[in-house]
Amino acid sequence: MASGAGFDISEAGTKKNAAVSLVTDRAEVSAIANAGPDALSIGVEEFTAALAGSTARIKTVLGDQNLIAGIGNAYSDEILHTAQLSPFAPANRVDAPALLETIREVLGQAREALFDLPPAKVKAAKKRTFCVHGRAGQTCPVCGSTIAEVSYADKSLQYCPGCQTGGKKLSDRRMDRLLK
């Protein structure tokens, strides 16, 4: 029987970003009870159906833990860069089997790079493997274009216009309003 005892892990700030729970069934943890299938174990048919049923931007769908669990903001940027897809592409127009292969490739490489590292070294190790995430203004290691960013109130996304959007910069509504 569970005691209910636990502890929280968070980064500096007021937002609760992480927690650890020891349970026998994820339904016992409300934050993940409705999580979708794990990104590394979802089948092609299920993934294809999830994308086909959504007109949302692919970046949004990849980060929706209720549809596919385990892909966060950083790795969705990296997956879309590797797949050469615009973050704004409608999910139902994406080649789902090809994208799923890319997800498995990117997350598999991440797992290998981070395996057996002590927790204190994981964040720095992750950052070293990123091509676009957190690298706005830097040069894309694939094509040499400048990595661009779209900012939202609580997060941002990074992408390579050369690799992902045919050289076009995506609209950053926050910056667009300032420039008017």
Rank of each mutant, 00 (worst) to 15 (best):
M1K: 14
S3I: 08
S3Y: 05
I9A: 11
A12L: 09
G13T: 06
T14A: 01
K15S: 13
K15L: 11
K15G: 04
A18R: 13
A18T: 10
A19I: 14
A19G: 11
L22G: 15
L22Y: 12
V23Y: 01
T24H: 15
D25R: 03
A27I: 08
V29L: 08
S30I: 11
I32P: 05
N34Q: 07
A35M: 04
G36I: 00
G36V: 01
P37I: 06
D38N: 08
D38Y: 05
D38R: 02
S41M: 06
S41I: 04
S41A: 11
I42D: 05
G43L: 04
E46K: 11
F47C: 10
T48R: 13
A50I: 12
L51I: 00
A52F: 07
A52D: 06
S54A: 02
T55H: 14
T55D: 12
A56L: 13
I58K: 00
I58R: 00
K59M: 09
T60H: 04
V61F: 02
D64C: 07
Q65A: 03
N66H: 12
A69H: 02
G70T: 01
N73Q: 14
Y75T: 03
S76V: 06
D77W: 14
A83L: 15
A83W: 10
Q84E: 09
L85T: 04
S86E: 11
P87H: 02
A89P: 10
A89D: 02
P90L: 03
P90Q: 06
A91K: 00
A91L: 04
V94R: 01
A96V: 13
A96W: 03
E101P: 14
I103W: 00
R104A: 12
L107S: 03
G108L: 10
G108Q: 07
G108K: 09
Q109I: 13
R111A: 15
L114S: 04
L117M: 02
P119A: 03
P119G: 10
A120L: 15
K121Y: 15
V122T: 12
K123E: 14
K126V: 12
K127D: 13
K127F: 07
F130V: 04
F130E: 07
V132P: 00
V132H: 07
V132T: 12
H133C: 06
G134A: 03
G134R: 06
G134K: 01
R135P: 11
A136M: 06
A136K: 09
P141F: 09
P141G: 04
C143F: 00
G144T: 04
S145K: 15
T146F: 13
A148P: 04
A148R: 10
E149R: 10
S151E: 03
S151V: 14
A153W: 10
A153K: 12
A153H: 09
D154W: 01
K155L: 12
K155Y: 10
K155F: 03
K155N: 14
P161T: 13
Q164M: 09
T165A: 02
T165V: 06
G166V: 08
G166L: 09
G167W: 10
K168Q: 09
K168E: 08
L170T: 10
S171R: 07
S171L: 12
S171I: 13
S171N: 08
R173D: 15
R174F: 15
R174L: 09
D176Q: 01
L178D: 15
K180F: 08
